[in-house]
Design a protein around this nucleic acid. Structure first.
Lengths: 220, 220
DNA sequence: AAATAAATTTAGACAAAGCTAAAAAAATAA
DNA sequence: TTATTTTTTTAGCTTTGTCTAAATTTATTT
């Protein structure tokens, strides 16, 4: 795998995210995303095209090639693993991790990232609930939904917790719920919209409507 | 604290290390250290002088200013904390950590480094036995010596272990000795050159000459 | 369909950090 | 003390990634 500059990686990552929505990306969009000028974007597009990372015809918009996608997934993997590390190990708050991970993601040692992944226990979602590509660049496609929306006998992994108040965290800790927790919905009660949930071999716990509305999961 | 480019930081760090030996540094020395050309060094010297990080008169050699020293200590702190992390947490072998830390040291978030320091338990020596500057840039001056050379009633911190064989690690683990372990020499026996050592509140242990010759410490 | 507006690209500049080759200063030798 | 060698600096060029201003292409109106 070749090495790309910080700037190239930032362009590739931004294109990756923008094309997730629309399939194709425009010069102005990308300039906006990267807080740069359209002329600078055009320059970089030529370079990325020359390196076969991009499908691009002047004036016609662009999207990543298969190779470009691979590079993007590598950057996303690094970014999200570092975010997980910063949040879980270094106890950064959720609004601080993105900026620091923006720098760390460009340290490109593959061995570093694979060992970090192992050290963290192969997490599948970052603290924002976004899936972390695995060592082969495979990424879970399922999108985050609210725990409240799940039906009995569904299994899911907690990926995001909206309310970060101390009280909330107290409840979560008590119930052994955190990012990455695997759980299975057992019952739902119409009466108060509460649900019963099983986590591993722990006794079944009850989750109130209020709580369930603040927990986001990936169905599996 | 201002921000410096990766290149500036590498120059400053190299000057810091070179001037530890001789007090002052020459253009050729620095070019050799950084695997670059003397002409490139001169260019950077002018820039660092303009930023008041360097005392420099053309043709007369140079050394870091007080400000330059502060910057250098910051880089060294980051480098050594990352080395410690890579070795202790990610289980990198000792010959792999330097290269990766060369990249990580340039991620400049102060909060990241201070939290990493805390997460690691405020280590005072990196895996090579070199002291880690603390949050205020203070660095322990004492140099690494062989455990075998210590006399009774001396206290020291383990900073380096030469032989990394599995058998060696087995013995160390059994005796609760690792990088950072504080110990006190109690007795030495001329007969077999073994020594008795106390670690914290654990019972006194015996260390053979063979073992002591492979453990390096900082006297305190 | 022609006119206007918006988006995109090209052309030309600039700063950072490197290089080579030539000039200048300092150190060493004859 | 000259002459020569070594070290250091200067001058000018290159690449990467950015910018502004002008030109071009595409889209939108009237």
């Amino acid at each position: 795998m070749l090495n790309y500059s910080v700037s190239e990686e930032n362009y590739i990552k931004a294109i990756f995210h923008l094309q997730e929505q629309a399939g194709t990306v425009t010069t102005n969009e990308l300039a906006g995303e990267l807080s740069t000028k359209p002329a600078s974007v055009t320059d970089m597009l030529k370079k990325l095209k020359a390196k076969k990372l991009l499908h691009y015809q002047p004036y016609q918009g662009f999207r990543l090639s298969a190779d470009g996608n691979k590079v993007a997934l590598g950057v996303v993997r690094r970014h999200r693993l570092w975010e997980y590390f910063l949040s879980v190990k270094l106890k950064f708050s959720w609004d601080e991790i993105h900026e620091v991970a923006e720098d760390l993601e460009h340290v490109s040692s593959k061995k570093l990232i694979d060992k970090l992944d192992e050290f963290l226990g192969f997490p599948r979602f970052d603290p924002h609930g976004d899936p972390i590509p695995d060592i082969n660049g495979n990424i879970i496609a399922s999108k985050t939904i609210c725990l409240q929306e799940l039906t009995p006998d569904t299994r899911a992994i907690v990926s995001n917790i909206k309310d970060q108040s101390t009280q909330m965290l107290e409840v979560l800790q008590h119930k052994s719920i955190g990012i990455g927790t695997r759980l299975e919905i057992r019952r739902k009660f119409e009466y108060d919209k509460s649900m019963e949930v099983k986590i591993g071999r722990l006794p079944v716990i009850t989750i109130s409507e209020h709580l369930a509305k603040n927990i986001f999961v990936q169905a599996i």
